[in-house]
Amino acid sequence: MTTYVALLRGINVGGQKKVPMAALRELLTGLGHGAVRTHLQSGNAVFTSPEKDPRLLARDLEQALAGRFGFEVSCIVLSAAELRAAAGRNPFPPSSFEPSKLVVTFLSAPPDAGRLSTIDASAYLPDEFRIGEREIFVHCPQGLGTSKLMPVLAKATADVVATARNWNTVLKLMAMTE
């Protein structure tokens, strides 16, 4: 059995795409997954599965969510090892940021480095970003709500599924996979 983390994009935000976490746990259990747990109301689940392909798990979960709730929800599924590896690529030293002001945007595929290279990073200071393998690390020292960089990055990654989690959530999800 492999432990996975499912990251659902854009649910329970402003009353849109409501997916209760109890229903998400039921759905994952109904798909045959074990040890299902959720974190927060923003679509974070940890579960075990004998399946070896996280992309297949994401596709199956997306289809099940559409069937159950009647709307599309994009998902990214990472193995616990993939989540730990992504966190290990964090280029910002832990003492240099408040965990709530560092966001990891997880991507369904590697980002288009050419498209991201066209962003004039100096125009968005003090916010800054670094590109990982299938993630983008974004530090917003004045908070995410005022960041002008986040919408620019969202446009630059519009060709892939992207969903962001703050560093506190990443750490909690890693702890839940142990």
Rank of each mutant, 00 (worst) to 15 (best):
E178D: 15
L116V: 12
R25H: 05
A164C: 12
N168K: 13
A45R: 00
R59F: 10
T105L: 14
A113G: 13
L56T: 12
S100T: 13
E135H: 04
R89V: 01
M174T: 15
L24R: 04
Q63E: 08
V13D: 01
G10C: 09
T29P: 10
H139W: 06
A158Y: 14
M150D: 04
R37E: 04
A162F: 07
L173I: 12
N12F: 00
I11S: 01
N168Q: 15
H139R: 06
L61D: 03
D120L: 12
H39C: 08
T3V: 11
E26N: 09
A85P: 03
K17A: 14
L149P: 00
A45P: 02
S49E: 11
E133P: 07
L61R: 03
F137I: 04
V104F: 11
S147M: 02
E178A: 15
G32D: 07
R68C: 03
A121T: 15
V77L: 08
S74K: 09
P151Y: 04
V104W: 07
L102R: 14
K101Y: 01
A121I: 13
V46K: 01
P111H: 09
L65Y: 02
L153S: 02
E26C: 10
T163D: 12
S108P: 11
K52A: 11
L31Y: 01
V170Y: 15
V46Q: 00
F47A: 04
A87K: 03
P110Y: 14
L173V: 12
H139Y: 07
T157S: 15
L31K: 00
L149E: 00
S42V: 03
V77R: 03
A164G: 09
S79E: 05
L61N: 04
D60L: 05
F129C: 01
C75H: 03
E51T: 08
G43V: 02
G10A: 12
